[in-house]
Computed example of a mutant assay.
Amino acid sequence: MPHDHAIQCVHDPLLVILSYLVSVLGSFTALQLAIAIPAAQTAAQRWRAIVAAGAAMGGGAIWAMHFIAMLACRMDIPVAYGLGLTVLSALIGMASCMAGLAIAGTGVFGWSKLIAAGVFMGLGVTGMHYTGMAAMMMPADTHYDMTLVAASGAIAIVASIVALWLAFNLRGWLQMLGSALVMGVAVCGMHYTGMQAASFMPNGAGDAALAGGLSVTNLGMGVFAVATLLLATMLALSLLRQRQRAMVQI
């Protein structure tokens, strides 16, 4: 039988910190890779840089952070995730970041283009978050506070505008690290605001609601392992290319 009281989400502080660190690593990697966008000599080079930086931002700083943060949410009911919507949320996150970088990085860089790209990217990031939420399989129905949903979207848009501005204006290593720390706060702020917008009401479906889903633990640790390996590899390659480029100039 359904209950009258919403299920509370209690966050594990260690996993919250881990989600933030993953977001910072993804943001730093994306900023490193984005250096190649304005420096590209050909359209092919520019698109390779856009795809790489967009994958790091959308897949690491945003999507991987999202699912590790979901793992941090402990509830008194079992939860699994549908594979289809989980994969779709990753594709939305990466595609929206690639599109934002492409819009802002094509032609003359300006504020109107930056804001348009940031709005597009922010809406995509918001769509990623709520698609990821829709992937949750549990014996409960999800209800949303639309004011907080709108607030999470606004945070995502502002964070996206800031991220794009930083991607095309920063060059120093320490500047990028400081910016990645700030971007991690912004991304986490969007996610946890979105989580605060959701309430979960038991519907009495039982374990049948979990049929065919991925367990939270398996999904979360898999996402963390893959994202960390991918971002570490991309960051190492980016730093190696920069070092090679500097040696050629000497």
Results as ranks from 00 to 15, higher is better:
115 I>P: 13
131 T>Q: 09
185 V>N: 06
105 G>I: 01
151 A>Y: 08
116 A>F: 14
116 A>T: 05
177 L>K: 13
115 I>R: 08
135 A>I: 12
185 V>Y: 10
86 T>C: 06
193 T>C: 07
180 A>F: 03
161 I>C: 05
94 M>D: 04
137 M>L: 13
92 I>K: 03
136 M>I: 15
107 G>I: 14
93 G>Y: 04
152 S>I: 01
147 T>G: 08
101 L>I: 12
97 C>D: 00
198 A>D: 00
200 F>D: 01
129 H>N: 05
195 M>S: 05
82 G>C: 10
143 H>I: 12
194 G>I: 07
118 G>H: 02
86 T>D: 00
149 V>N: 08
131 T>N: 10
78 P>T: 00
112 S>E: 08
119 V>T: 13
132 G>Q: 06
187 V>R: 04
167 A>M: 14
189 G>D: 06
183 M>Q: 05
131 T>C: 12
107 G>L: 10
119 V>L: 15
138 M>A: 13
104 A>P: 13
95 A>Y: 13
149 V>G: 08
123 L>H: 03
147 T>C: 06
176 M>I: 00
79 V>P: 15
191 H>R: 03
150 A>H: 02
129 H>R: 08
163 A>S: 04
146 M>W: 11
131 T>L: 11
146 M>N: 03
128 M>N: 10
162 V>Y: 15
194 G>A: 11
176 M>Q: 02
172 G>R: 00
178 G>I: 01
